[in-house]
Design a binder for these strands. Structure first.
Length: 595
RNA sequence: GGGGUGGUAGUUAAGCCUGGUAAUAACGCUGGCCUGUCAAGCCAGAGGGCGCGGGUUCAAAUCCCGUCCACCCCGCCA
């Protein structure tokens, strides 16, 4: 091994170009691949910018060539050499630097490497377990470097954008307070306060509202949030939010602010113009036409409510749905009458995961409606159904009758499955959408009480205030989500800023005066000291990056993510701690019965 | 808490359904040859006992039970 000594890198590998022909350069990096021809030795030298070929010729530099003999992949080296043009027939068109190469005069071997457990290259097929265990090697792969570096660029762009728009980035505490409602908190025991715990923030929601009360007017933060819930491909226990809040806003101000920012990101990063303003859709319309609150508008296959067609139907599934207060919805899959029984059975089976009891499949063929159920529907029902679904010969109609929530969710999934199967989802299309007018609360069947759709600080529409106690379910909120290609990338609202309204909402949510005082007393107090109207939004940076990067999981956009069981395979966290540590924290581990 | 997929040399996979006597391949690795390759080439070689623990059987990578790990999903995620 050798030291770098006084060598200073001239530039990154791919920054060497035609302009440097004949010049002397110092390059440093990793041995990406090693080709020994007995005489001449070629090495592709890699750094974060890419590759350049360096040449060890025994006649040109004997000592360097002898030393190069021992090199292996992933060794770290520094070379001093001369930039030369490659002979015309030796140009490698696959590399940006393929027209030139560096003839090495002196080689310094800075570090060895064991044989790596997987190749440092794109398009590898390796276990995620292995990638996460050796994350620092995984992150060496150009594809991953690109994602992580793009993430830096996006965040930088966002920070600059908000700075230019008069927003201040203000940090909020990580060690804070556990609050009811929302996700499970990560707790941190307090050594100085035996038996008491901090909670890690699920979001800086209350702090940013208090910053508005404090008169900062425009706040943003790129901030980590933590939620102790089960993981998914698009959910990590700690994730990054762009958190924004402003005073005296109309919802339109928030829309414009975010639209301009997102358009800027797409322009800078993807080179694409995003049409503005983004379309808007009310929550009611989204649920009606798409069965979900974050519709993917890149394709059709819209859902149609058919309940009114079957008030007196003989078809027992629909009859039952209607008698139980449910709905019947359908969609038309154009040109799919040729699908096999297995195709539709597979769909039906997949829908069971979403609570669907079944799916009614009706093929529209030359000779009329096919399928076992066609005979249970009378002529009027058939005619109206075909009309409503705008079905043609060769199409297949798929209907379902169930509780409203089940029908919507299952039909939403069905729509997505059909779109995928029929390849109706356009590539490289980015459909942004605002979904507005969310219901303030939803009834929780498990807890038998109203729960916030958004969070308890969301302002009801002023015109709905009178229904707050009498008809909570019909109160709409001044809340909005930004949806991109069927993914909720952010959401926000105008907040409550008057203590008496906040108290009414707490009441409606079943939070007692006493509990409200304990949990949110500081907020209610703050509202009594001249709180301005305020509102904001939060964007999920990880999901945004996933869409920009085009991957299947947000893990690839996070340098050091966790597994589905919430562990970090590289550092081996979480792990046990010593008895002493526990004692200091006044904690005792209860050994679960492991038998 | 539940459903599904996977776990076999360093890696990726085949073998498993239909148990059978040195567990197969490619890439990687090691050594040798080779002065223009860039997925370098040619020759030779090393390397695993099939995630772990039980069971069935004359015999288990193959069958059964349990368990661990990773991934996908439901529940959960204001």
């Amino acid at each position: 091994m050798e030291e770098l000594g006084s060598w200073k890198r001239t530039c990154y590998c791919t920054e060497v170009g035609k302009q440097d022909l004949g010049k002397e350069v110092y390059l440093m990096g990793w041995v990406n691949s090693y080709r020994d021809h007995g005489g001449v030795i070629f090495i592709d030298l890699r750094d974060r910018t890419g590759l350049i070929q360096v040449v060890f010729n025994p006649v040109f530099a004997g000592t360097a060539h002898d030393k190069a003999n021992m090199l292996r992949n992933e060794w770290v080296i520094a070379v001093q050499g001369e930039v030369r043009a490659r002979p015309q027939d030796m140009i490698n068109t696959k590399l940006p630097t393929g027209g030139i190469e560096v003839w090495v005069k002196e080689l310094r071997i800075l570090n060895r490497s064991l044989a790596v457990p997987f190749a440092i290259e794109d398009e590898i097929k390796i276990n995620e377990e292995l990638r996460l265990t050796y994350r620092y090697l995984d992150l060496r792969r150009p594809e991953m470097q690109k994602k992580i570096i793009t993430r830096h660029r996006v965040v930088k762009l966002i920070r600059d954008y908000f700075d230019q728009h008069g927003f201040y980035e203000i940090e909020t505490p990580f060690l804070t307070k556990s609050t009811p409602e929302g996700a499970r908190d990560y707790l941190v025991p307090s050594r100085l306060n035996p038996g008491k715990f901090y909670a890690l923030p699920q979001s800086p929601q209350l702090f940013k509202q208090l910053l508005m009360v404090a008169g900062y007017d425009r706040y943003f933060q790129v901030v980590r949030c933590m939620r102790d819930e089960d993981l998914r491909a698009d959910r990590q226990p700690e994730f990054t939010q762009l958190d924004v809040e402003m005073s005296f806003p109309r919802p339109e101000d928030i829309y414009e602010l975010m639209e301009e920012m997102l358009a800027k990101v797409w322009k800078e990063i993807m080179g694409l113009e995003i049409p503005r303003p983004f379309p808007k859709m009310t929550w009611d319309e989204a649920m009606d036409k798409y069965g979900c609150d974050r519709p993917d508008t890149r394709y059709g296959l819209l859902l149609k409510n058919l309940s009114d067609i079957f008030p007196n139907t003989e078809y027992r599934f629909f009859k039952q749905a209607i008698s139980e207060g449910g709905i019947i919805k359908g969609l038309n899959a154009p040109g799919c009458a040729s699908w096999s029984r297995k195709d539709t059975d597979d769909l039906t089976y997949a829908l069971k995961a979403y609570g669907a009891k079944g799916l009614t499949v009706i093929r529209y063929q030359e000779e009329g409606l096919a399928g076992p159920v066609a005979k249970y529907l009378n002529a009027d029902e058939q005619k109206l159904m075909i009309e409503r679904l705008d079905a043609k010969v060769g199409d297949v109609m798929m209907l379902m009758g169930d509780k409203v929530s089940v029908t919507n969710e299952a039909m939403n999934q069905l729509r997505q499955m059909i779109a995928k199967k029929m390849k109706l989802v356009p590539e490289n299309k980015f459909n942004f959408l605002w979904v507005t007018d969310f219901p303030l609360v939803e009834w929780s069947e498990t807890d038998k009480r109203w729960k916030s759709t958004h969070h308890p600080f969301t302002s009801p529409r002023p015109e709905d205030l009178e229904k707050l106690e009498s008809e909570p379910g019909s109160v709409k909120a001044v809340a909005y989500d930004v949806v991109l290609n069927g993914v909720e990338i952010g959401g926000g609202s105008i907040r409550i800023h008057r203590p008496e309204i906040q108290e009414r909402v707490f009441h409606m949510l079943g939070i007692s005066d006493e509990e409200a005082k304990i949990k949110f007393g500081f907020l209610l107090d703050a509202f009594r000291f001249g709180a301005p109207p305020h509102g904001g939004i939060a964007l999920g940076i990880d999901r945004l990056m996933q869409i920009l990067a085009g991957g299947n999981s947000i893990r690839d956009c996070i340098a050091f993510p966790k597994t589905q069981a919430g562990s970090d395979l590289m550092v081996n966290a979480p792990n046990e701690v010593s008895e002493d540590q526990l004692k200091e924290l006044h904690l005792k581990i209860i050994k679960e019965d492991l038998s």
